[in-house]
Simulated scan of single mutants.
Amino acid sequence: MKNTDTSQGCTNLKLRQLTRMVTRHYDHYVATCGLKNTQYALLSYAVSLEPVRPVDLARHMQMDASTLTRNMQPLVAQGWLTICAGNDARSRRIEVTTAGREKQAQAQRVWQEAQLTIVAQLGAERVAALHQLLEECIDCLDNGGEDASEPPHQCP
Protein backbone atom coordinates (compact mmCIF):
# COMPACT_ATOMS: atom_id res chain seq x y z
CA MET A 1 0.00 0.00 0.00
CA LYS A 2 1.35 3.40 -1.00
CA ASN A 3 1.90 5.95 1.77
CA THR A 4 0.08 9.12 0.76
CA ASP A 5 0.59 11.07 4.02
CA THR A 6 2.81 13.98 2.97
CA SER A 7 1.62 16.39 5.67
CA GLN A 8 5.06 16.54 7.22
CA GLY A 9 6.97 16.78 3.96
CA CYS A 10 10.54 15.68 3.40
CA THR A 11 12.74 16.12 6.47
CA ASN A 12 15.88 16.25 4.36
CA LEU A 13 14.49 19.06 2.19
CA LYS A 14 13.32 21.11 5.18
CA LEU A 15 16.65 20.73 6.97
CA ARG A 16 18.61 21.64 3.84
CA GLN A 17 16.45 24.73 3.29
CA LEU A 18 17.00 25.88 6.86
CA THR A 19 20.70 25.04 6.73
CA ARG A 20 21.19 27.05 3.52
CA MET A 21 19.40 30.07 5.00
CA VAL A 22 21.35 29.96 8.26
CA THR A 23 24.64 29.37 6.43
CA ARG A 24 24.01 32.39 4.18
CA HIS A 25 23.34 34.48 7.27
CA TYR A 26 26.61 33.51 8.99
CA ASP A 27 28.60 33.61 5.73
CA HIS A 28 27.48 37.22 5.20
CA TYR A 29 29.07 38.22 8.51
CA VAL A 30 32.19 36.02 8.44
CA ALA A 31 32.96 37.05 4.84
CA THR A 32 33.84 40.52 6.14
CA CYS A 33 36.95 38.87 7.61
CA GLY A 34 37.86 37.13 4.37
CA LEU A 35 36.69 33.72 5.54
CA LYS A 36 33.95 31.29 4.66
CA ASN A 37 31.86 29.94 7.51
CA THR A 38 33.46 26.48 7.10
CA GLN A 39 36.93 28.03 7.30
CA TYR A 40 36.02 29.93 10.46
CA ALA A 41 34.72 26.70 12.04
CA LEU A 42 37.88 24.81 11.08
CA LEU A 43 40.12 27.57 12.42
CA SER A 44 38.12 27.72 15.67
CA TYR A 45 38.33 23.96 16.20
CA ALA A 46 42.06 24.04 15.48
CA VAL A 47 42.56 26.83 18.04
CA SER A 48 40.60 24.97 20.73
CA LEU A 49 42.21 21.56 20.11
CA GLU A 50 45.77 22.57 19.19
CA PRO A 51 48.04 20.84 18.64
CA VAL A 52 45.78 18.31 16.98
CA ARG A 53 46.24 15.44 14.58
CA PRO A 54 44.25 15.80 11.34
CA VAL A 55 42.31 12.60 12.07
CA ASP A 56 41.23 13.95 15.46
CA LEU A 57 40.24 17.33 14.02
CA ALA A 58 38.18 15.60 11.32
CA ARG A 59 36.44 13.46 13.96
CA HIS A 60 35.60 16.50 16.11
CA MET A 61 34.21 18.32 13.07
CA GLN A 62 32.23 15.28 11.87
CA MET A 63 33.92 15.26 8.46
CA ASP A 64 36.06 12.83 6.54
CA ALA A 65 39.81 13.29 6.29
CA SER A 66 39.84 14.18 2.60
CA THR A 67 37.30 16.98 3.12
CA LEU A 68 39.35 18.29 6.03
CA THR A 69 42.52 18.27 3.93
CA ARG A 70 40.78 20.14 1.11
CA ASN A 71 39.27 22.71 3.50
CA MET A 72 42.60 23.27 5.26
CA GLN A 73 44.53 24.12 2.08
CA PRO A 74 43.44 27.79 1.85
CA LEU A 75 44.13 28.29 5.57
CA VAL A 76 47.63 26.86 5.20
CA ALA A 77 48.20 28.96 2.05
CA GLN A 78 47.19 32.12 3.97
CA GLY A 79 49.65 31.23 6.73
CA TRP A 80 46.95 30.72 9.37
CA LEU A 81 47.64 27.00 9.90
CA THR A 82 50.77 24.91 9.66
CA ILE A 83 51.05 21.16 9.26
CA CYS A 84 53.99 19.83 11.23
CA ALA A 85 55.56 16.45 11.81
CA GLY A 86 53.87 14.42 14.53
CA ASN A 87 55.28 12.05 17.12
CA ASP A 88 56.51 9.58 14.51
CA ALA A 89 57.41 9.59 10.83
CA ARG A 90 53.87 8.69 9.75
CA SER A 91 51.92 11.24 11.78
CA ARG A 92 51.24 14.94 11.38
CA ARG A 93 49.80 17.63 13.60
CA ILE A 94 48.06 20.91 12.90
CA GLU A 95 49.13 24.10 14.62
CA VAL A 96 47.65 27.59 14.44
CA THR A 97 50.01 30.45 13.66
CA THR A 98 49.92 33.84 15.37
CA ALA A 99 48.24 35.25 12.25
CA GLY A 100 45.72 32.40 12.43
CA ARG A 101 44.88 33.20 16.04
CA GLU A 102 44.37 36.85 15.12
CA LYS A 103 42.14 35.91 12.17
CA GLN A 104 40.09 33.54 14.33
CA ALA A 105 39.62 36.25 17.02
CA GLN A 106 38.57 38.78 14.36
CA ALA A 107 36.10 36.32 12.83
CA GLN A 108 34.77 35.33 16.25
CA ARG A 109 33.71 38.92 16.89
CA VAL A 110 31.65 39.09 13.69
CA TRP A 111 30.34 35.56 14.26
CA GLN A 112 29.01 36.77 17.63
CA GLU A 113 27.20 39.59 15.80
CA ALA A 114 25.67 37.01 13.44
CA GLN A 115 24.62 34.89 16.41
CA LEU A 116 22.96 37.83 18.18
CA THR A 117 21.15 38.81 14.99
CA ILE A 118 19.75 35.36 14.34
CA VAL A 119 18.63 35.01 17.96
CA ALA A 120 16.87 38.38 17.63
CA GLN A 121 15.17 37.23 14.41
CA LEU A 122 14.05 33.83 15.70
CA GLY A 123 13.66 34.58 19.40
CA ALA A 124 15.78 33.17 22.23
CA GLU A 125 13.18 30.57 23.25
CA ARG A 126 12.85 29.23 19.70
CA VAL A 127 16.65 29.03 19.30
CA ALA A 128 17.01 27.19 22.62
CA ALA A 129 14.24 24.76 21.62
CA LEU A 130 15.82 24.27 18.20
CA HIS A 131 19.22 23.51 19.74
CA GLN A 132 17.69 21.01 22.15
CA LEU A 133 15.71 19.30 19.37
CA LEU A 134 18.76 19.15 17.11
CA GLU A 135 20.90 17.63 19.87
CA GLU A 136 18.24 15.02 20.56
CA CYS A 137 18.01 14.18 16.85
CA ILE A 138 21.80 13.96 16.55
CA ASP A 139 21.87 11.58 19.51
CA CYS A 140 19.12 9.44 17.97
CA LEU A 141 20.78 9.27 14.56
CA ASP A 142 24.35 8.82 15.78
CA ASN A 143 25.19 5.18 15.31
CA GLY A 144 28.46 5.47 17.21
CA GLY A 145 30.59 4.95 14.14
CA GLU A 146 28.82 1.74 13.17
CA ASP A 147 28.38 0.76 9.55
CA ALA A 148 26.03 3.25 7.89
CA SER A 149 24.33 0.40 6.03
CA GLU A 150 23.04 -0.96 9.35
CA PRO A 151 19.73 0.46 10.57
CA PRO A 152 20.27 3.03 13.34
CA HIS A 153 18.98 2.38 16.84
CA GLN A 154 15.52 3.69 17.68
CA CYS A 155 15.09 6.54 20.14
CA PRO A 156 12.17 6.63 22.52
Rank of each mutant, 00 (worst) to 15 (best):
A124Y: 11
E113I: 02
I94G: 06
A99R: 04
S91L: 08
Q108K: 03
A105Q: 09
T82D: 14
T82P: 04
V76N: 02
D88L: 02
R59N: 10
I138M: 08
C140G: 09
L68E: 08
T67F: 10
S91Y: 11
N71I: 01
D88E: 06
Q78C: 10
N87Y: 09
M63R: 07
L116N: 11
I138T: 04
R126G: 00
L116Q: 15
D64M: 00
G86K: 04
A77P: 04
C140Y: 10
L116A: 12
L122M: 12
L122I: 00
L141A: 10
T67N: 09
G79A: 00
M61C: 03
A85T: 07
A128S: 14
Q104F: 13
L141N: 08
D139A: 13
Q121P: 05
N71Q: 14
L75F: 08
E113N: 05
L68F: 11
R126H: 12
E113K: 03
R126F: 14
T97H: 05
M63G: 00
G86P: 10
L133M: 08
G79V: 00
C137Q: 08
E125T: 12
S91W: 11
M63Q: 06
L122H: 03
A77K: 03
A77E: 12
Q108H: 13
M72C: 09
Q121D: 15
Q106I: 01
Q108E: 15
Q62E: 10
I94H: 05
I94V: 14
E136I: 04
T117K: 14
G100H: 01
W80F: 09
V110W: 14
V119W: 11
R92N: 10
C84Y: 08
P74V: 04
T69S: 14
T97C: 04
R70K: 13
L141G: 13
Q104G: 03
G123L: 04
E135V: 02
Q78G: 07
T97P: 10
Q115G: 00
Q115Y: 15
W80P: 01
H131Y: 15
A128Y: 14
R93A: 06
I118F: 11
M61L: 14
I94Q: 03
S66R: 06
L116S: 11
T98P: 06
A129W: 13
V76P: 06
L81T: 01
R92H: 13
V96E: 01
T69M: 11
T117G: 15
L81E: 03
S66A: 05
A65H: 08
I118V: 10
E135A: 07
L130S: 11
I83Q: 10
G100I: 03
I138S: 04
C84I: 00
E125Y: 11
M61A: 02
D139H: 06
M63L: 09
Q106M: 08
V110E: 13
A65N: 07
T98F: 09
D88M: 01
Q132N: 11
G100W: 04
D139T: 03
V76L: 09
C137D: 04
R59I: 02
R126Y: 13
C140H: 05
I94K: 01
A89W: 08
Q132W: 15
H60E: 14
L141K: 01
I94M: 08
A105C: 02
I118N: 02
E102R: 01
